[in-house]
Design a binder for these strands. Sequence first.
RNA 1: GGUAGCAUAGCCAAGCGGUAAGGCAUAGGUCUGCAAAACCUUGAUCCCCGGUUCAAAUCCGGGUGCUACCUCCA
Length: 465
Amino acid sequence: MKVYNTLTNRKEEFVPIEEGKVKMYVCGPTVYNFFHIGNARPFVVFDTLRRYFKYRGYEVKFVQNFTDVDDKIINRAKEEGITAPEVSEKYIEEYFKDAGALNVIKADVHPKVSEHIPEIIAFVQTLIDKGYAYEADGDVYYSTRKFKEYGKLSGQNVDDLGSGARIAIGEVKKDPLDFALWKARKEESEIAWESPWGMGRPGWHIECSTMAKKHLGETIDIHGGGQDLQFPHHENEIAQSEACNGVPFSHYWMHNGYITIDGEKMSKSKGNFFTVRDIRDHYTGDVIRFFLLSGHYRSPINFSDELMESAKVGYDRIATCKDTLSFLAKNGSDEKMADEDKLIADFDGFRQKFIEVMDDDMNTADAISTIFDLVSAINVAVKDGASKTYAEAALKMIAELTDVLGIFQIEEEDMIGDELQALIDERQAARKEKNWARADEIRDQLAAMGITLKDTPQGVQVIRN
RNA sequence: GGUAGCAUAGCCAAGCGGUAAGGCAUAGGUCUGCAAAACCUUGAUCCCCGGUUCAAAUCCGGGUGCUACCUCCA
């Protein structure tokens, strides 16, 4: 498999550290609010990558943190009159609800910053001991210029960064490029821990370095996150980890593109964002996920009602195909069509195509179009009178591919109640007598209940919307 | 000022050296009691200019336009 490595700016063959295994770390949310559609993209993208690795037989260890110590959480706690831990606990719970709706599988480990303070302190101390960091008034800063390779991920060089007018010069920092590893407490009420430098809390970047090391080791295979974390967050992680451990931090860095609204980046700071919670009022998590995977993960994608609507219709095309197959698997003919065995054998071609495009830097857009091609082939076969056996095989094939993308949640099979069955039977009787008025009345009645009836050669198909 | 990236049909979007996938929308048709779904048919020389090549949407150079990062942000 090839992946685009931000570190080298090119696609590279993926070679794991340990054969057959993948160690992945993905930056998780700061839990002070519901997450928005832009936050959702890396969750979905890297969940899909993880699923694909598993599909290809790798054993994956996947770690995604929760940043539960942060200014924004502290501010939120003040606003709501509750403690910071209460805020983060609440939004961790909400994270799992929305991520679950998006069919994002839980990470093997979801480490929290608040549970890694001793490790973080030790990490910072090592950096001080090695001469990469210094204490100043209870803060600890990283001496950016000491790390010779600083800038290798983002393609920046320290002198250009230094000349940028937008870097504020802190009072106690020795160099404007230095960043905080540890922040001294400013107010008594702030959440803080004991440390060799006094009461305080970790800086933002150090947590990821520490938690990745603890749960995955000093060198990992893949580090993922949004493109906007590339600098400074990931650059700083590299500086911290490699200075501390003396070995490469991550072999591959993968960054997803951002989501735009009317062509502008959506972000919490701009306020032009939509939470997944809100979008879920209009679309299912599956459709949202399908939308997010409909473009290549590195390209920016625009979000709008119109595009979501278009995605929903496309998604329904696949869903309808699956529904039809499920129906035929039960009610279809036992008699095979002439070339049915060949058609079933041809499924492997779609599988191979799917693997080929996913192997190429996880091209989910092409993967989806392969699924559409499969759907077309299936629809033709169904039109030509495919058998029960075909339906079962086709259903299995389509489920195999959609499961890798995670775009269909496993749903409980709906039982058709007696009352509903009675109405359906009555309508069939009415149709037999050509009492179209009554038949349509029943169909409309059920439609109002969110149930669509399709009259097919194999009988009535019941679809719940 | 520094650094990335993008520009393909009405819209979304793949392709990244051999003469343009797929989805949505549109129009016509088939099937159906009517529907629903499905099926068939329907569309682009790829921002502009120059170059390399037998061959370029794909490579190189120069434009133009857009976006992002350099500040908390996925």
